[in-house]
Amino acid sequence: MSKYYLNYLDELESEAIYILREVYAQFQNPVILFSGGKDSILVTHLAKKAFYPCKIPFALMHVDTGHNFPETIKFRDDLIESLGARLIVGSVQESIDKGRVQEEKGKNATRNALQITTLLDAIEENKVDCAIGGGRRDEEKARAKERFFSHRDDFGQWDPKNQRPELWNLLNGKHFEGEHFRAFPISNWTEMDVWNYIQRENIQIPSLYLAHEREVVMRNGSWIPNSEFLKLEEHEEIVTKKIRFRTLGDITITGGIESDADTLEKVALEVSTMRQTERGNRSDDKRSETAMEDRKREGYF
């Protein structure tokens, strides 16, 4: 076979770098939406590569629900320092205090949906014209049709029927004042690709992704971590388990799985034999069959 071909990880990497450079060239004020999860860490890593030896030309924007894993915040701050990048925080607590949104009530209350308002406010206040996200098409059915450059109207909303066709490598980021784009450079990566690449590049990720002992409670089929926000039901009991997280969201809704995978290599191996999707432990997606699509339309990540 000819030596002039790329393996699939190199091709995905090259595609992502190409998209990140297009974002930089076509927009005035792009940011990376940074959640502290592996996908946004990966996007940040790719951005570092895309512009080397320049510093990464994007600020990192974090929508802070206040319901964080402490490990995530520490990780975020360390990363920002090592990159020399600017951090923009949109605070859900502030949105609540200002009366822009109302806290959900009840046992399974989360701040997940409230993030949308905070995110859109932060985008508007900071005059962001492109928010780069770590969304992947394999994650959820509403994401399977997402574009690399996804257009949002001046209300920040996604209209799946009014997206621009994307042909070849030609990305159209033209927009009017007040509109913004979401860009998804790792659209074509699967969860397995992400883990294989993290392992290959030895990318630092929060320790939460590796198996560790933690106080948890069983709720809706997954292990929800104990935290100051957790309200125990009568029949529920806190136990200590060796678990790890497949995705990281709010501490209130992110369920862990029991696992012994405490190195990147073991995690990649475990993921390759998984029979459940990674979002299967996210109670925000379980609310209805179209939970993700509905939130995306409103302006969710």
């Binding site: 098409r137 394999d138 399977a144 049709k145 659209s187 699967t190």
Partner: peptide
């Protein structure tokens, strides 16, 4: 629309 699927 065009939907993208993945398998390995």
């Amino acid at each position: 629309d065009v939907a993208y699927r993945y398998f390995t």
